[in-house]
């Protein structure tokens, strides 16, 4: 009996610009159910961070409560982490991000954690455009508490032991768009080809980047009447197009066919290439994005890929005009300008 990860890795694992292999971005061995979609998303996060050569100590991973929120233990074992309270990850990230703007904030949540108890926090963090990646591992149920329907379960969908759901579903991408999110994408745990570049783009985006990842719960919600099963999602998903992420300073090696692909330069200088499949969607136009989502919902399909991105996004720090140096790096002299300055300020207000 094992349940421990062997130390050995593939001897020729590629190293990134920092000299690290993918193994340096792994975490502890997962204790989730065998086949849980969440583990694949963890794998995609490991791959994206490795390929982007992000220094592990420059990342903070934060989560709420749920199977999904447990996953930060299983990736980025050398990064900072905070497993917070149910539905409250957004406020903890907000505090952390304000104190130290230099870290990459990777929020991980579940559909229960986000769309039920955490709905209020989610709405506001999207609206404030906090600079973070917000990944929802969306399985349409409360996995950790044994599979009750969550608020993202589709009307009529039934979990393994449950009756068809009688309520209408919350669409987190739609909600985020309404709330003013500046990067919105949807993907599927079983499609790393799509998910990894989306995570990279979300990391490069400055502002709030939501990726709603459908992630089947093999134990409670992967049955034939569920719309969040591996089989259903594979059959009903329609990609907006494919996306290729090219980090800053990396040579573009793929040949892009003019006309079909769209190159976008991101805030940090990296670029993404979109090959649109669905011509009706313009992911840089919010109205078009909202329409496309509605269309797909109507036809019973799941729209995946990059749905919306605002290239002029201004994140919370820019809006608040906060100090460029992280607050935690400011000392007393910086924070307390002295009596003379105070008198000046007071005088200006008289």
């Amino acid at each position: 009996m094992s349940y421990q990860l062997p130390k050995f890795r593939h001897p020729e694992l590629p190293v990134n610009d920092l000299g690290y292999t993918k193994a340096d971005y792994e975490g502890a061995i997962s204790t989730l159910c065998a086949g849980c979609g969440h583990d694949s998303i963890s794998g995609a996060i490991v791959r994206a961070c490795h390929e982007l050569s992000i220094e592990p100590h420059k990342i903070a991973k934060l989560s709420g409560i749920g199977c999904s929120s447990k996953t930060p233990t299983y990736f980025l074992g050398k990064s900072h982490g905070f497993n917070s309270v149910h539905g409250r990850m957004p406020s903890v990230v907000t505090g952390a991000a304000l104190a130290n703007r230099d870290l990459l904030y990777m929020g991980v949540s579940g559909d229960g954690d986000t769309a039920s108890i955490g709905m209020g926090q989610f709405a506001h963090i999207a609206r404030r455009n906090l600079n973070m990646v917000y990944i929802v591992m969306n399985n349409g149920c409360y996995g950790l508490t044994k599979g009750q329907d969550s608020a993202t379960a589709d009307r009529g969908s039934a979990s393994k032991k449950g009756d068809p759901n009688i309520y209408s579903a919350i669409d987190l991408c739609g909600t985020a768009l309404q709330m003013g999110a500046t990067f919105v994408a949807r993907s599927f745990s079983g499609d790393k080809e799509q998910l990894v570049p989306l995570i990279k783009a979300a990391i490069s985006h400055r502002g709030f980047a939501l990726i709603d990842v459908i992630s089947p719960c093999v134990t409670f919600n992967n049955n034939s009447k569920s719309t969040k099963s591996y089989e259903f999602v594979r059959e009903h998903s329609e990609a907006t197009g494919t996306i290729d992420f090219v980090p800053l300073h990396k040579e573009i090696t793929t040949e892009y066919q003019p006309g079909h692909s769209h190159e976008v330069t991101m805030h940090d200088g990296s670029s993404i290439h979109l090959y649109k499949v669905d011509e009706s969607l313009n992911p840089f136009d919010r109205r078009s994005a909202i329409n496309a989502m509605e269309e797909h919902r109507y036809s019973g399909n799941i729209l995946t890929g990059l749905i919306y991105m605002n290239l002029d996004s201004r994140d919370l720090h820019e809006v608040l005009e906060t100090s460029h140096r992280p607050l935690n790096a400011l000392d007393e002299a910086d924070l307390c300008p002295g009596n003379k300055m105070l008198l000046n300020i007071n005088a200006s207000l008289r």
Binding site: L13, S30, G35, D39, S40, G190, Y230
Partner: peptide, 14 residues
């Protein structure tokens, strides 16, 4: 196989 990728993700030696 339901193509969940679990084996791909766990395999220590890829």
């Amino acid at each position: 196989c339901i193509e969940c990728d679990a084996c791909v993700d766990i395999c220590p030696t890829d």
